[in-house]
Design a protein around this nucleic acid. Structure first.
Lengths: 221, 221
DNA sequence: TTTTATTTTTAGACACCCCTAACTTTATTT
DNA sequence: AAATAAAGTTAGGGGTGTCTAAAAATAAAA
């Protein structure tokens, strides 16, 4: 059994491993869990003692099978609760993160499965992130940042890299949503900003910062 | 802002005041929050410093207006979540307490109201307990323990005093449910056990212990 | 009313999780 | 390779919430 804090660290490590594929460094974890490096080191010892991570001082950490199981379970709960909040309670996609951060720690041997069933076994959460199944399996998204899409190519928006309220509201404001067809019209070499069209209609000029945080799946056509 | 632990203490005090009407003693609180008297004393100082209770050593405690507001909010959340678990997720009434104990501490300025609306503004939780409204108002139940009902009188079951899984399953097993009409047929003076009829049909013999934990509203007729 | 029992509080300690400051190890420059 | 910078760890400490054991206050009994 893990504490809320331990679960948060495991989830953070899992996210970082997903992105980088390598051993995770202390400062990266500290940034994700909003704490300091020293606190991270303390926790790494604890998680290592519990055999949830493999840790060698100065060399970063990775999850053990046991640790990954816990982390994915937390992620599964987080994403299912987000679906509940948006689809059942009527929240907007930029409002649910903090509440789901709390709900993901609710402990029950049956709750997650009942919730999953109640929601109709959703595959994806409101931000396009895949929901791990009961056994912990989670298929890899075939997605790239819009910033990497070649000029003149079309793609479907499937997710966001930045989950902050600020960024999500920005997308809402410009009517850019999951599932939209996005085409890169023209890239400015100077600042890597780009002109895009959304659903073959409106043209919008977005910064590279924004383009990096929009995730798309290339459409083969 | 209160910690989970503080909220649990406030809720316990509130419950005890509801029952006794008087100042609450340390050991009673300790029993309800599953801790020791010494821990309670520590917490009483903390809650007193925060002006959530009024506390004089050796003389028991009571809630301040501020403390009562917090306690009722927690109770409201607990009962709403119980409704959700039973009505939406399909839990049985004896399975929801522990999960609701966790859910009641979820912090959000909007969640409770959205949940309330989603559930259709329920008045009562699965155990017959009244759900405080948004403003914290909660009407008093006109209910007495079945044990106090005079022989030959009819009443409607409206609640339970014991929320334990064991007791609730006992009631399920004997098909005694909220809303059932109960009539006391005969009381045994020796052990205060009694013969009752449920919905004018089956007769059951129940102990005084059980009769004390079944709450009924006298039907005037 | 004095003694005994019960209840409550204080004292001292520990686990958890966080912090700052100082030190050590590793990486990067020059 | 030596000097500097960056990253990570250790040392020491603080707040929360719990505990046991001992002391103090209150209640009950002789």
């Amino acid at each position: 059994m893990q504490t809320h804090s331990e679960e948060n660290y495991l989830k953070a490590i899992w996210k970082l491993v997903e992105h980088s594929g390598e051993n995770v460094n202390t400062n990266a974890i500290a940034a994700l869990v909003h704490t300091r490096a020293a606190s991270v080191t303390d926790m790494m010892k604890k998680l290592s003692d519990k055999k949830l991570i493999s840790y060698q001082p100065y060399k970063g950490v990775s999850l053990t099978a046991k640790g990954e199981r816990v982390a994915i379970e937390v992620v599964r709960k987080h994403r299912l609760w987000e679906v509940f909040l948006v689809e059942q309670l009527g929240y907007k996609w930029d409002e649910v993160h903090d509440i789901a951060e709390q709900l993901e720690h609710i402990r029950s041997s049956t709750l997650t499965e009942k919730l999953d069933k109640f929601l109709g076994f959703p595959k994806v959460d409101p931000h396009g992130d895949l929901i791990p199944d009961k056994s912990g399996k989670i298929s890899k998204q075939q997605q790239i940042p819009l910033a990497q899409l070649e000029s003149g190519n079309k793609a479907i928006m499937t997710g966001v890299a930045d989950h902050s309220t600020l960024f999500l509201r920005f997308l809402d404001k410009h009517k850019i949503h999951l599932g939209d067809t996005i085409e890169t019209k023209e890239k400015t070499t100077y600042d890597s900003s780009m002109e895009i069209s959304v659903n073959r209609k409106k043209n919008i000029h977005i910064s590279n910062e924004v383009a990096k945080n929009i995730l798309v799946r290339k459409s083969r056509s």
